[in-house]
Design a protein around this nucleic acid. Structure first.
Lengths: 123, 123
DNA sequence: CAGGATCCTATCCGATACTG
DNA sequence: CAGTATCGGATAGGATCCTG
């Protein structure tokens, strides 16, 4: 029962008590909306990228945080990781099916905010 | 689906350099996807709520963080704040038009994650 | 190139106390 | 009820060095 949709419970019953601390979705939402998670997911939406490409994509991210963010998203099943045992090694990241699904509302969110902040001047 | 300004720049030129540190959308995205911001916005999507209702809605949030989160979102123009000078005072919060627009992808994100984590529908 | 390990600092955030 | 102010612990996150 605690696995049930949190919002549905709120809709049928009282209108708050919406988000449990134990709600398992909280953790994944926290990962997805983490400081860097959202940018990683949006970046990978266009095409698979290697580690340094991601680092260059997302200005201001440190290698530590990129590695950490990628690890969390891989564990959550949002991103796959492919290692090519060449020299030097190549590691490519891409969105899983679920990751692509999740990246849609994220991109939507980003687009709406971007359009709001620059209605006439792009970037 | 058309991409935002930042992504478009990436498409026409090199495929990274996507997110500037100076990008003004970064700040607002950070607010929206802050630890508590997303839950406040989703909570207010159903109906306007008073301070204590929001506190009760979002389990685990402290009054300090709720106030802080609300202030940031009000400043960003995502949420309005209405003070009724009664005794005791009543302060109600609700989504602005832009806040409602933003809450859509947020709710979408939340729903997708919730459905993913509980595929077997509860009784 | 792709990270792991370490150190260290900024900030987040909860608890508490206080105000109108 | 709806906050504000302050303190202190926890954690996020950057810088640097090191490795396969």
């Amino acid at each position: 029962m605690k696995e049930g949709a949190q919002l549905k419970q709120a809709e049928v019953g009282n209108r708050y008590e919406v988000f449990h601390t134990e709600c398992p979705a909280r953790d994944m939402v926290d990962h997805v909306t983490s400081r860097w998670g959202i940018w990683v997911l949006i970046s990978l939406r266009n095409n698979d990228l290697r580690f340094f490409e991601l680092r260059n994509s997302i200005q201001g991210i440190s290698e530590k945080m990129l590695a950490q963010t990628l690890r969390a998203l891989v564990e959550d099943g949002l991103i796959w990781r492919e290692v090519e045992p060449t020299t030097p090694p190549q590691v490519t990241y891409g969105l899983s099916a679920f990751g692509q699904e999740i990246s849609e509302p994220l991109t939507d969110l980003f687009n709406r905010i971007t359009q709001r902040l620059s209605p006439q001047s792009p970037g």
